[in-house]
Amino acid sequence: MQSQPVFNHRWLPWLLLLPQLAITLVFFLWPAAQAVWQSFLMEDAFGLSTEFVWFENFSVLLQDEIYHRSFATTFIFSIGVTALSMGGALLLAVMADQVIRGARVYRTLLVWPYAVAPAVAGVLWMFMFNPSIGILSYLLEQLGYDWNHFLNGDQAMLLVIIAAAWKQISYNFLFFLAGLQAIPRSLIEAAALDGAGPMKRFWTILFPLLSPTSFFLLVINVVYAFFDTFGIIHAVTQGGPGGSTSILVYKVFDDGFNGLDLGSSAAQSVILMAIVGALTVVQFRYIERKVQY
């Protein structure tokens, strides 16, 4: 007696897979292949004259100090966003975990920013910090601090980091909270009875037990900072002033659409593809390791 239904059709699995395969092919593989092809070409904007140049677009990029600087910018930006959004989320999660009354309300409010579109989030922060009309820049000025992220590259960087981290905190918060709630209460209570204070309990029990969650979030946040923050940069600084917030993914757009240099833009997106590929490998390796926990 067999309890499981059996499908003998050879084509049915393929048929069921077909829609997803078609979408992957049309919206992912095909454009990716086009980007690879374009990265070998040197072309005018209208595509009237095309020259096949092998790896020249790449070699020019690797010698370009602006591209190097964009790498450094992306590095600083990613570290900033990841540290701020994970640190903030962990703090909020630990606090929300201890709340007993109205816990749901707090959680809902904390998850809220995740629903805000990146561009909208960017515009929000841009208005608050606008040097002429922003409420926060006005307050800073009252405190004697001159805020002008249109001129000051460091301030511009700080602003986009805050805006990007703010949006990601909700996501991290959810995972940290779930991680915390999975930790048996008995462990914490036992430690409390042994006389461990809240800080000691956090660092010796909660934090180590959260490490799988933390590592997973680290990868997710770096990927987020690398690729999903385009909308915020575009809305707040447009890569400026003087390229000081021009992260790699923004430079792809800027060189392709503003500079109309499709070859170089495609080469940059191929390099980005390689980076995201490497990050995905790291992530899968990690998840496999996590299974053994």
Partner: peptide, 15 residues
């Protein structure tokens, strides 16, 4: 050609 980017370079250097 590439005047948009050249203007950006000029802006940076003048600053």
């Amino acid at each position: 050609g590439n005047f948009v980017q050249i203007r950006d370079i000029i802006n940076e250097e003048l600053e």
